[in-house]
Design a protein around this nucleic acid. Structure first.
Lengths: 244, 244
DNA sequence: ACATTACGGTTGTTTTTGCAACAGAAAAGA
DNA sequence: TCTTTTCTGTTGCAAAAACAACCGTAATGT
């Protein structure tokens, strides 16, 4: 009865699960049927409550289905910093799935009243016989999801490991041009967001961008950029690349 | 015959595979038996040859079994930078396993004559009926391996996203203290390596470390560090924390 | 239409960093 | 033991970045 109740409660959130990368391509019916197979447990948290603490070994992949969380960290002298915000539909904890990971190094705290579903790592990764046909799909999705995250992290690290603001900008903008397959592209940030993303000061970045424009390296307007060939085979760099 | 030959050639490298995280806990016999199930293909490269090019979608997880590779990237203006070196026994390509990953954003080049085994992503992630009992273990290993990578990336990013050298040091050293569960710990880097890891100049970092020592924040000798409580409840900071 | 806010650029000042070169101590090698 | 190399700290200087404050314009709201 208790179990039935829990499953019944979880039904409330299956529509959220359906939207996640982990359950991409799987219908609500199937998700519902898989929950027990994946060892799903629904937990509720009041605002301010700890979802996970430093040192915990949840052994679980967690999807937030209601509310929002902060992943935060305190340094040795007690200065707290918020590493990221988790919104409903997002996954966390998967980086600490490995038994050798040695426990969480962050705290996870509910910013508002929240609910999360914990999936047992072992049961997720050990595909059961044939009871749930979609288990394999979940494993694939999960793998793709985490590898996707990985890719983004490596890329960002590539930008951030550059010494100067200019080099960071070049690294980021080159990447973006490649991704959009054109020297003319738009970015998903405004100036402040881009500065935050690259961990530099906005005004210093703005100064550097303008310097690069003066040198004929690129042109931009708002969030649209144009990388130029500075050898300047055409004009001497005085032509207007954007005219409003 | 050709297939048999290929498998026979692969046998040469099974001892290498056995050492990898992907095949941890699996015997050479089993690995050998699984190769076809995982769609393994052995490829050889001459020094300087491209293993993968920007834009490729290998759809494979690759393990280097002989030689070494460079993962490198050229920016829009053609400046090349080497992102990492791959040694025998290491895995790559797994971050581009997802179909939506949009193709490799780097080049992979053989630094010396090399051999790599390609495992088909789809066949790895789709566990076959019961033909190979260890398939599930491989999937788990793979997942743990990538999640471990992920964890390290996030941590490093946490350090690197700090604005000043001091903050980077504080972030890194705090982390290390937590990991070793003591304010007194050693780090796996010498000064130059630490500077490279944090992407800062060695001499500037050295200067900052000494400044922090003067301020009573920490003590160190060689690669051993001691984080101190700067409120200074004991001495005024003049006591020798290390005495040779 | 007007006030308010968000955004991007500009500028001056201070601080930090990178760079380069050097020096002493420790480690490694002959 | 003596030499050579590696590692770390030090310093001066030039370049770069952070910081803070301000401005004009565009977007938004009333």
């Amino acid at each position: 009865m208790f179990l039935q109740q829990k499953r019944a409660f979880m039904k409330e959130y299956i529509s959220v699960l359906k939207q996640t990368r982990m359950f991409a391509g799987i219908g609500e019916e199937e998700i519902s049927a898989m929950l027990s197979c994946l060892g799903a447990k629904l937990c509720h948290y009041k605002k301010g409550e700890y979802v996970l603490r430093q040192g915990d070994r949840p052994g679980a992949i967690v999807i937030l289905v209601r509310g929002s969380l902060h992943i935060q960290k305190d340094d040795y002298w007690g200065n707290r910093s918020i590493l990221s915000q988790i919104a409903a539909g997002e996954m966390f904890g998967e980086a600490y799935a490995a038994p050798e990971s040695g426990g969480l190094r962050n705290d996870v705290v509910a910013v508002e009243d929240s609910s999360a579903i914990f999936f047992d790592v072992h049961r997720v990764l050990t595909t059961c016989s044939s009871a749930c046909r979609f288990h394999t799909a979940v494993v694939q999705n999960l793998f793709f999801s985490i590898s996707e995250k990985n890719r983004k992290l490596v890329q960002k690290l590539g930008h951030m490991s550059r010494r100067s603001t200019r080099e960071k900008l070049i690294s980021y903008l080159s990447e973006e041009a490649k991704k959009q397959n054109s020297p003319y592209f738009s970015i998903p940030f405004n100036r402040q967001q881009l500065a935050d993303f690259l961990s530099v000061d906005r005004s210093a970045m703005s100064r550097e961008l303008c310097r690069m424009r003066e040198e004929g390296l690129l042109a931009f307007e708002k969030n649209r950029f144009h990388l130029l060939n500075p050898q300047g085979q055409s004009g001497a760099g005085n032509e207007r690349r954007f005219s409003g």
